[in-house]
Nucleic acid binder design. Structure first.
Length: 437
RNA sequence: UCCGAGGUAGCUCAAUGGCAGAGCCACCGGCUGUUAACCGGUAGGUUAGAGGUUCGAAUCCUCUCCUCGGAGCCA
């Protein structure tokens, strides 16, 4: 590199304030440019932030000034200059350029600094990720994932990865992506839960974290065909304890984002008032109570129905913090759910609904620990018993009450960031009509 | 799969049966403090595709394709 680092240390823009009044080198890309004739204002980004670098004609060589005039958006550059604290600069610090080196001149950059439609931006997702709004979202996603791991790791959970290629449906309800497995059929996982039950019997408290695949033809702002889910599972655990862990878990995640990503929430113009209310205890409603509330609100529902979108939306409008709805009718839940001992028409389970219209972010509950009941359910649901023998073994060899839950990362991030679509919460979204880039 | 909205310049949009336009981007010129800078100029079009109605179609009709939103299903 022509600009020698030893004459001015290479720094990141994120740490620029610490180098006020010092000459430094910044390696990055041109985010934007303005000119006023004999002064050029270069907005330089390096992944850690954006800084304005000022090129004054009278203070640099003619070559440097001409080069700065010709720079195109997203050209990669190395700038050297003196940092100054300046109230006029958005980040509070600004650079007066002394030297400038072009690394690569960008061709016409497709993403301008004006409005674009979602289709265009998603087609250019690989470039869209460079924008500051997407940076904010990805940083928050990163915090959410770290918080998930930190919380579980420090609460006695062991990370046990579940397989992604699976021989059969976990739940038998949703559509799976099929793939060829040396002449046999295999499917991309739609949940690691059954494997986590095996792991919980081995380790007590476990979780898996990874991508999940659903081949459903859902076309809504809440659906992806590939999304990330964390699935904790706990041996010797009842629904009360399960929900208690969930609310501490979600509260911890939100608190971490509020602490670590204040700048990012500001970029997203997120009103944090409602996030500050995400502290235990959350609201707890039985399915019976929830149906009463929905009925009183004049929204159509019959006892026994699963919640559709209008029902869920109405229910959440009544509260400004997350809500557990527990003990749903067993008929609308998966075959492995434990039945309520006094009311066998109910499953011992819960969903956690996020406020502000974001809906279900967690689904969970007690798994049946009774061998006879599971054999019966496998028959009723017409599932291939052979494929579940290993799962049934868990009830043959030291069965215990156990439960767990699954939290969807993208829906959680969408809620915390208050985005109107989950497609912005994952770097490269896979959706019904999109697998590029 | 069903319901609704839409497809016009690279991007965001206007033109509703009568000359296809604007802003941004690009390019050229001007400007020593700009904040999505501003000012002047240049370039840019098979109006998604096919067919039809009409003197005349971006505009009306039919079909196809694509996108967006919603439903169902779910995290």
């Amino acid at each position: 590199m022509e600009i020698a680092a030893n004459t001015a240390p290479v720094i990141t823009i994120g740490s620029a304030k610490e180098f006020a009044d010092k000459e430094v080198t910044i390696r990055g890309w041109l985010y934007g440019k303005r000119s006023s004739g004999k002064i050029h204002f270069l907005l330089v980004r390096d992944g850690t932030g954006i800084i304005q670098a000022v090129v004054v004609k009278a203070e640099v060589t003619p070559e440097v000034f001409e080069l700065s005039d010709k720079l195109t958006q997203e050209s990669s550059i190395i700038v050297k200059g003196k940092l100054r604290l300046d109230g006029r600069a958005p980040g509070g610090v600004e650079m007066t350029v002394t030297d400038l080196q072009l690394v690569s001149l960008a061709q016409d950059y497709p993403i301008g600094r004006k409005e674009h439609g979602p289709d265009f931006l998603m087609n250019n997702r690989h470039l869209w990720l460079r924008s500051s709004r997407q940076h904010a979202i990805m940083k928050i996603r990163s915090t959410v994932i770290k918080s998930v791991r930190d919380f579980l790791d420090s609460n006695g959970f062991i990370l046990i990865d579940a397989p992604i290629l699976t021989p059969a449906a976990c739940e038998g309800t949703t559509t799976l992506f099929e793939t060829d497995y040396f002449g046999d059929k295999a499917y991309l996982t739609q949940s690691g839960q059954l494997y986590m039950e095996a792991a919980a019997m081995a380790f007590g408290r476990v979780y898996c974290f990874g991508p999940t695949f659903r081949a459903e033809k859902s076309k809504t702002r809440r659906h992806l065909t590939e999304f990330w889910m964390v699935e904790p599972e706990m041996a010797y655990c009842d629904l009360e304890e399960n929900m208690a862990i969930q609310e501490r878990f979600v509260a911890y995640i939100v608190r971490q984002v509020l602490e670590k990503n204040a700048d990012e929430l500001k970029i997203l113009e997120r009103d944090i008032e409602l996030l500050l209310k995400v502290e235990p205890p959350f609201i707890r409603l039985s399915y019976d109570e929830a149906v009463d509330i929905i009925k009183k609100g004049g929204v159509e529902i019959e006892w026994g129905d699963d919640f559709g979108s209008p029902q869920e939306t109405y229910l959440m409008e009544q509260f400004d913090k997350p809500v557990f709805v527990y003990n749903f009718p067993a008929a609308v839940k998966a075959f492995y759910m434990k039945r309520h001992p006094e009311r066998p028409e109910l499953a011992v389970c819960s969903d956690l609904l996020a406020p502000e219209g974001y809906g279900e972010i967690i689904g969970g509950g007690q798994r049946s620990d009774d061998l006879e009941y599971l054999l019966e359910q496998i028959e009723v649901h017409k599932l291939p018993k052979d494929a579940y023998e290993w799962y049934l073994d868990l009830r043959r060899y030291g069965s215990v009450p156990h439960g767990g839950f699954g939290l969807g990362i993208e829906r959680t991030v969408a809620w915390i960031c208050k985005l109107d679509h989950v497609r912005e919460t994952i770097p490269f979204a896979r959706m019904l009509t999109r697998i590029y880039p």
